[in-house]
Amino acid sequence: MKLRILSSIIIFLGSYLPLAAILVLQDISKESWEKPICDITKLTFENCQLPTLNNPEIALAFLGITAFSFVFFILTINSIKSGEVAIIEEAKQIPGDIINYVFPYVVSFMGVDISDKGKLSGFVLFLAWLFLITHKSGQIFLNPLLILSNWKYYEVTYSIGNHKRTEYALSKNTLIPNSKVRTKKVQDINIMSQKD
């Protein structure tokens, strides 16, 4: 099953929710960092104020888009239940690959100034290239935020009928030898769930 380009873009953007949160924090004005959010000497919230952003439209739009995309992604992957029945022969969890996918990109953009149009354009172009590479390689589902939703990445050997295969899979359940699962291939990744 191949994803449509719009679905792929939404899923891809969902993996950059932490980066969007970092950009919002970096966009908080210097004056806001110097003032407390609330006056803790008073027991009311009347004296509380949210920090001000230098570029609220851009920062909050990116945060909103990535938050929506992440929720869409989680709902999409959790809705994949059907598929062929497979018998697991061998399964090896690969936890590092999901973390390694996004970590360098988050670190790379710790200093992005979204008020600078040149840096913002470069950032958008970089994300577009990452998307194209990720989409073409079929790795769009390798979202490091899946760890927060208890999904795991495996190298798995399984059989369907008399056909034995060794491929990569995502599963919320622990994959153990001789267990039966349902598997559906989406963008070159098997989504495996417990057999009903």
Rank of each mutant, 00 (worst) to 15 (best):
D188P: 01
A169W: 02
A91T: 01
K2S: 13
R182F: 09
V24H: 09
A128C: 10
L50N: 10
G122P: 07
L3V: 00
I88V: 15
G14M: 00
I40K: 04
P104A: 07
E167K: 12
W151C: 12
R182H: 12
H163W: 09
L75V: 07
F62C: 03
L25Q: 10
L43K: 04
I140N: 11
E31L: 09
N47S: 15
A59G: 04
A169L: 08
M192S: 11
A67W: 09
I160Q: 11
Y154E: 04
T157R: 11
F141N: 11
V102P: 04
N150I: 09
N143V: 02
V112S: 08
P18F: 03
L6T: 07
I5W: 10
L19W: 05
L63H: 03
G138C: 04
D97W: 14
I22A: 10
V181Y: 11
W151Q: 12
A20M: 05
L19F: 01
L75K: 12
F68W: 09
D116S: 13
P104Q: 07
R182N: 15
L6A: 10
Y105G: 05
L132V: 13
T44I: 06
W151A: 11
K184M: 09
I94D: 05
F70C: 06
K195P: 02
I65F: 11
G161W: 03
V106T: 10
E57F: 14
L23M: 10
I11R: 04
D97T: 12
V156G: 09
G161L: 05
D188Y: 02
I37M: 13
R4E: 15
A169C: 12
L3A: 08
W33K: 05
G138M: 01
K185D: 10
S7R: 06
K172W: 07
N47E: 14
T166Y: 05
H163S: 12
I11Q: 05
K2Y: 06
I98M: 14
P104G: 03
N100E: 03
E155G: 08
I37F: 15
N178C: 08
V85H: 03
K195N: 14
P18Q: 06
I88D: 01
A86G: 02
D113P: 00
I37S: 06
K2N: 13
K117N: 13
